[in-house]
Design a protein around this nucleic acid. Sequence first.
DNA 1: CTATAATGCAATATATATATTGCATTTTGT
DNA 2: ACAAAATGCAATATATATATTGCATTATAG
Lengths: 68, 68
Amino acid sequence: MKNIKLKVARVAKDLSQDDLAKIVGVSRQTIGLIEQGKYNPSLNLCVEICKALSKTLDDLFWEEDEEE
Amino acid sequence: MKNIKLKVARVAKDLSQDDLAKIVGVSRQTIGLIEQGKYNPSLNLCVEICKALSKTLDDLFWEEDEEE
DNA sequence: CTATAATGCAATATATATATTGCATTTTGT
DNA sequence: ACAAAATGCAATATATATATTGCATTATAG
């Protein structure tokens, strides 16, 4: 499923996908695909994204009820 | 770094690595290596582990200050 | 309305998470 | 002390996250 919370947190910091990608050291596509829910990032990448956006894992990546 | 919180949460539920592995649908080695901090699980796997242990991502996988 | 930036999408290539098997070592129960 | 279970470790194989490039589309600024 799409990760709206991530997108909101990113735009709240006035960052483009490309900006965030550079900060956390991945490609723009990776950020885009994560926001679109098209894949399953690694824990380390999630943590880096959280730090870049001043959030925690639960803030951005925890869904109370998830379907696949 | 080793994930002590994961190990503690697992033994608190009286589960072996193999038990937990079966519940979340991965191999025993995968659980063992995550506990030893020898790799970087996917977000989906982290979420499944959390659910199996009645914890959240922040409970098991968030470290306030991490070094690599 | 037009230029530019931001995002989506597709294809191929690479790195790495995960599976599998087998065995060694440690831990636990009796 | 012994048996059984739990864990660690190593090698090879596979699936998939991620990189890279290029182009199409959508949003934003002038």
